[in-house]
Amino acid sequence: MFENAEVIHSYTRAQAIAEGFLFDVTEAARAEQFRLPVALAPHAYAEAIDYDDNTDAHTARITAVLSAARAAIRDLPESAYRGEFQIDRGEGDAEPDLLTLIAHCGPSDQGEPVITIMRPADD
């Protein structure tokens, strides 16, 4: 059906990362034993990592998100391509501030598998 279709526009994952539309956290993900490249979508990054002025906490928050994502992925059936999980943004507050995120495994620019962490509305 689309064999002879002309590509009008394409936007690669590499372009999205270069332009700041996706936040590449692959290096931190490798430390959390991810084997695939990992990036956060803008809403996930803003709401899970960069939601206040405490930039010193970003590294710890990225690690917490990746750890929760890894646990959610680990518990999925082998055929699943996405897992939902929650993190607590409360940081020691008595009242939890839960945020729901999704880890989605899909193809990258050349068809290789990658993981994108996003908010449910972004899916």
Rank of each mutant, 00 (worst) to 15 (best):
M1N: 15
M1F: 14
F2K: 13
F2D: 13
E3M: 10
N4F: 14
N4W: 14
A5S: 11
A5L: 13
E6N: 09
V7W: 08
I8Q: 12
H9V: 15
H9Q: 13
S10Y: 10
Q15N: 12
A16I: 12
I17K: 00
A18M: 07
A18I: 08
A18K: 06
E19P: 07
G20V: 07
F21N: 15
L22Y: 05
L22Q: 02
F23C: 11
D24T: 10
D24A: 07
D24H: 06
V25T: 06
V25M: 01
T26I: 01
T26N: 05
E27R: 14
E27K: 15
A28G: 10
A28R: 09
A28K: 12
R30M: 13
A31D: 15
A31S: 12
A31Q: 14
F34I: 07
F34C: 02
R35D: 12
L36S: 05
L40I: 01
L40K: 00
A41P: 02
P42N: 13
H43S: 15
H43L: 14
A44C: 00
A44D: 00
Y45F: 11
Y45C: 00
E47I: 06
E47Y: 09
I49R: 01
I49W: 05
D50E: 09
Y51R: 04
D53I: 11
D53T: 08
N54Q: 14
A57K: 05
H58L: 10
T59H: 09
T59M: 12
A60R: 10
R61W: 00
V65Q: 01
S67Q: 14
A68V: 01
A69D: 00
A69Y: 01
A69T: 01
A71F: 11
A72Y: 05
A72M: 12
I73M: 09
I73D: 05
I73T: 05
R74P: 08
R74D: 11
L76F: 08
L76Y: 04
P77L: 13
E78D: 11
G83A: 03
E84T: 15
E84Y: 14
F85A: 02
Q86I: 10
I87R: 04
D88V: 02
R89S: 03
R89Y: 06
G90Q: 06
E91H: 14
G92Y: 05
D93P: 02
A94E: 13
A94M: 12
P96Y: 05
D97G: 07
L98H: 13
L99E: 03
T100I: 03
T100R: 04
T100M: 03
L101M: 04
L101E: 00
I102V: 09
A103M: 06
H104C: 15
H104M: 13
H104Y: 15
C105Y: 06
P107F: 08
S108G: 12
D109N: 08
D109S: 02
Q110I: 10
G111R: 09
G111E: 01
E112A: 10
E112Q: 10
P113N: 05
P113L: 03
P113K: 03
V114C: 05
V114W: 04
V114N: 04
I115R: 00
I115D: 00
T116V: 15
I117Y: 03
M118V: 10
M118D: 02
R119A: 09
R119P: 03
P120M: 08
A121L: 15
D122L: 04
D123P: 06
D123F: 13
